[in-house]
Amino acid sequence: MSEIEESFKRIQTHKGVVGVLIINRNGSVIKSTFDQETSVSYSKMVIDIFPKADQLLKINSDNDELSFFRVRSKDNDIMITPDKDFFLLVVNKIHKE
């Protein structure tokens, strides 16, 4: 447990990270650094977009599984690692030196 807390904190405090969110397959928020409203809106989007991304990947290889999912703009970056039951989402603001 403490190790999870530690990793969570480390990711959260990494330079540029705006927030971290963990949800389960139904979209229920398990752990979040965002407020409830933001968390839920992220959660809804993830739930919505994940099956599509998965299908996109499956066009080419049927039995492949989506394991990392990233949306990136010039300054913003959202990373999602989906699993069988959970999603870990990190919102990252790209910092420029």
């Binding site: 999870i4 480390r10 990711i11 990494h14 990373m79 870990l88």
Partner: peptide
């Protein structure tokens, strides 16, 4: 799940 995916995320973060 978390041990696995936090590693992935961290790699991605640091790679950035």
């Amino acid at each position: 799940f978390f041990t696995k995916s936090s590693k992935v995320i961290e790699r991605a973060l640091y790679l950035d």
